[in-house]
Amino acid sequence: MEFRDFGDRRLQLPSVERDDLTDERPTLRGEIDLAEAHVQYGEHAAHTGEGSITKSVLSGLNLSETVYAPLELSDVVIEDAELSNAVWRKTTARRVRFARCRAIGWQLQLDKATDVLVEYCRLDYGSLRLDRVANVMVFYRCTFRETAITGDLSRVVFADCDLAGAEFDAAQATGCDLRGSQLAGAQGLLTLSGATISTEQAVSVAVQLATECGLRVED
Rank of each mutant, 00 (worst) to 15 (best):
A170K: 07
V57A: 09
Q201H: 09
R100N: 05
W88E: 07
E17D: 11
L128A: 00
V77E: 02
D8S: 15
D115P: 01
M137P: 01
F6I: 03
L183V: 10
I104L: 02
L117S: 09
S52D: 00
K112E: 13
R94M: 09
E146L: 05
S52C: 01
S56F: 02
E119H: 12
C176G: 00
L128Q: 07
A186M: 07
A184L: 11
V57M: 09
E79G: 04
D152Y: 10
L73W: 09
A171K: 13
G42D: 10
V138H: 02
A148P: 10
D162K: 15
Q187C: 08
E65Y: 11
R97T: 15
W106Y: 12
R102E: 10
T66M: 09
Q109N: 14
L71E: 15
C161R: 00
I32C: 09
T150G: 12
E218N: 06
E167L: 13
L190Y: 05
T147V: 11
L215Y: 01
D160N: 15
H44S: 06
A113M: 08
E79Y: 00
A134F: 07
N62M: 09
D5V: 13
G165R: 10
Q187E: 12
V96R: 01
P26S: 14
A166E: 08
A170M: 04
L73I: 04
A173D: 07
R129H: 14
V217G: 15
V57K: 02
H44A: 07
Y125C: 02
A166G: 13
V87H: 14
T211Q: 14
V76C: 02
S52W: 05
W88V: 10
F139R: 05
G175L: 08
E17T: 05
R216K: 04
A159W: 11
A159E: 12
N62G: 03
I197W: 05
R145S: 04
Y125K: 04
Q172M: 00
N62K: 13
L209C: 09
D8H: 15
Q172H: 07
P14L: 01
A184K: 04
N62L: 07
A184Y: 06
A184S: 15
S52F: 07
G185L: 01
D8K: 15
F6T: 06
L163D: 06
D5K: 07
S64W: 06
V77W: 00
C142Q: 05
T91L: 10
G7Q: 13
R89C: 03
S15D: 14
I32G: 06
E17P: 04
G188W: 03
L11Y: 04
C121Q: 10
Q172C: 05
P14T: 00
E36Q: 08
K55L: 02
Q109K: 09
C176L: 07
A134V: 12
V67S: 14
I78T: 02
E50C: 06
G214T: 10
V217S: 09
L189I: 08
L128Y: 06
P14M: 05
V136A: 07
P14S: 01
V207E: 11
Q208C: 02
G42P: 11
Y68R: 13
C142N: 14
R89K: 15
